[in-house]
Simulated scan of single mutants.
Amino acid sequence: MFDWLDPLQHFQLDTALILTLLVASVHVTFRVGIMSLAPMGFAAVGGYTAALLATEAELPFVAGVAVATLLAGGIGALFAPPVLRLRGIYMALGSLALAQAIVVLIRISDVTNGPNGIAGIPLEVKTEYLVLALIVTFVVLELGHRSHFGRAAKAVRLDERTAEGLGINVFRVRFVSFTVAAALAGLAGALEAHRTSVISPDQYGFATLVIVFTYVLVGGNGHWAGPVLVTWGLTIMRDMLEFAGSNWEDIIYGVLLVLVLLVAPNGLSDRSLYRGIRRRLRERNRPAPEIDEPAEKVTTP
């Protein structure tokens, strides 16, 4: 289906699709008011699990990816209670510490070949598989968005105490979101491992996390389509700016992101932004009211 793309375009497309899975993972937690910095740790779990199952256990590709996804989700569920007890910046730092602990354990473990990583992973991932994985993810996100759980998640994000007063189990909503986000990140890591055929602990650093969070913040938490479209648009823009060199590319990219955040601080998926734009357009196109001139006074001699 995608044979008309040259190798570089094919690689860029696959990178954007896997990055979209990571963005969807962050959006799931961001939707309920959790700023989790743990997705790269769960991606490492998924990537290394799939790599070990493929190279050591010789498990089929689909089974290995499924096990990696479930294991990442299981670890997310295991560590969700202590992380979710934290609040604000402490929750973000706690989730970051969890991710860093996972990467450090991978780096010092002999099972994962330490800092050298794992090579020779079968190249099983095709672009069609990534598209199918994203379609399934989008369907699940849309069903969740329209469901009672989606409305409860929005209520939890807006006001936790009010949500509790409405009978919503805040911990359960955040627990499910954290676990699903971990599984999505694990799926992204597993697919990435089978796409590049080699992984190392250095792949799961802070730089990728910053890019993913930027896309989520610009896209907003109003709807999952916002961060996804921003990911695709800004990825295309970065590829088009390569001619300017890395320094100018980063400068132009950063300025555009700052401008977007100034215009839309709640993200591009915030409905109030577009309601305000439509109201201003109606006011601008509305004809000015006619002012009747006062009648001339008639003076009598």
Results as ranks from 00 to 15, higher is better:
264 A>K: 08
219 G>P: 11
261 L>F: 00
128 E>P: 07
132 L>N: 02
153 A>M: 15
174 R>D: 00
196 T>H: 05
246 S>A: 15
270 D>T: 10
231 T>D: 03
300 T>K: 04
235 T>I: 03
33 G>Q: 08
57 A>C: 09
135 I>V: 15
69 T>V: 05
298 V>I: 07
228 V>K: 12
26 V>D: 00
200 S>Q: 06
137 T>H: 03
62 V>R: 06
54 A>F: 09
26 V>I: 11
194 H>W: 03
100 Q>N: 11
197 S>W: 06
41 G>N: 02
248 W>R: 13
162 T>D: 01
148 H>V: 15
245 G>D: 11
245 G>N: 13
199 I>Y: 01
203 Q>P: 01
176 V>C: 03
85 R>W: 07
269 S>Y: 09
99 A>L: 10
150 G>K: 14
137 T>I: 10
227 P>H: 14
114 G>R: 02
90 Y>M: 12
57 A>F: 15
42 F>C: 02
138 F>R: 06
180 V>G: 00
152 A>C: 13
152 A>T: 12
239 D>R: 10
186 G>Q: 07
213 F>S: 04
140 V>E: 01
265 P>I: 10
301 P>A: 04
39 P>H: 10
135 I>C: 11
80 A>R: 14
36 S>Y: 08
273 L>M: 13
103 V>L: 10
22 L>S: 00
261 L>Y: 00
33 G>V: 09
198 V>E: 00
264 A>E: 04
248 W>D: 07
72 A>F: 04
131 V>S: 05
227 P>K: 14
58 E>K: 13
254 G>M: 07
233 G>C: 12
75 I>R: 05
172 R>L: 11
37 L>N: 01
144 G>L: 15
49 T>Q: 08
43 A>T: 01
141 L>R: 06
220 G>A: 14
232 W>Y: 04
218 V>I: 15
18 I>Y: 02
217 L>M: 13
170 V>N: 05
261 L>R: 01
54 A>I: 09
290 E>V: 14
252 I>Q: 06
270 D>C: 12
276 G>P: 05
22 L>Q: 00
70 L>V: 11
278 R>Y: 10
253 Y>E: 05
288 A>G: 10
38 A>V: 01
150 G>Y: 13
262 L>S: 01
288 A>Y: 08
170 V>Q: 06
67 V>R: 04
290 E>L: 13
240 M>V: 13
27 H>F: 14
1 M>S: 10
215 Y>K: 14
131 V>A: 11
292 D>W: 02
157 R>N: 01
209 L>Q: 05
212 V>F: 05
183 A>L: 09
295 A>E: 07
54 A>P: 11
27 H>N: 06
107 R>S: 10
234 L>D: 00
278 R>Q: 11
30 F>C: 00
107 R>F: 08
167 G>W: 09
20 T>L: 14
282 R>H: 08
300 T>H: 03
270 D>M: 11
118 I>R: 01
119 A>W: 04
102 I>K: 11
59 L>H: 02
108 I>G: 01
229 L>C: 12
286 R>V: 03
294 P>E: 09
83 V>F: 09
185 A>M: 09
187 L>F: 03
273 L>G: 06
87 R>T: 08
288 A>W: 10
